[in-house]
Amino acid sequence: MSEPFTSDLSASEYLLVEDAGFEPLGLVVGVAVYHVGFREQFASNGELTVLGNAMYKARELAMDSLEGEASRLRADGVVGVRLETGRQGWGSQLMEFMVAGTAVRHRGGRKFRTKNGRAFTSDLSGQEFRTLLNSGYRPAALVMGYCVYHVGRRGVGQAVKQVRQNAEMVNFTQAMYDAREHAIARMQTEAQRCHADGVVGMRIQENHHRWGAHTIEFSAIGTAVVALPDAGGIRPPLTVLPLDDQRSR
């Protein structure tokens, strides 16, 4: 008798994943606690590469750990991956990075692993995963892009000129454009690296001042998808009104 599985999928997600021909194997978790190095300080707008690199490195360590657990379970992929970053008040240089999801394997032995033999990862819900498969696509990898950006300070002359004025903070506006574009471009690069047709379920998050004043952080996260070779085309959508109580969750 096989070992019982654990899964963070909801009841309907679990049933849909099973209905799609996958069996849940277990909850897989990856953790990395990272000590962030010395931060550069700029007078003008500029990217804080040490912070960005730390985010990438911590993510990579956590994802490696999650994928390692999935491989040990001989999984084809991990669905419903959730990602959390946190910092402790007492250790401002320490950053916690945690990912968790449900490892799954196709019952029919169909190949769903990526080209390099790794389990696919996806942050899509069970409903979205099932819909994607029904429509002739499969997830390839969870792709991310980060950018931590320092917003330069206004010059004294400009600050004096804007006293008691409603005025655009051009330095902030430009910094947000730059940081956002960097984050999205990096996510797209990751998607291209896994030969994806596109990225779905993309979320852009912005954190202000997490790293102190005049620092903004953008992250872009989504699931890179590739077309299935024997795809039969997209089926007509079925409109369903669920009886879920959102307030009770």
Binding site: D8, S10, S12, L15, L16, D19, G80, R82, E84, M98, A100, D123, L124, S125, Q127, R130, T131, N134, R203, P237, L238, T239, V240, L241, P242, D244, Q246, R249
Partner: peptide
Amino acid sequence: PALAIMPVLGLGRGQEKGF
């Protein structure tokens, strides 16, 4: 019962659950 895969009121994962 049919399994709702395309709900009218889409619940993103962030709303559905969390740590």
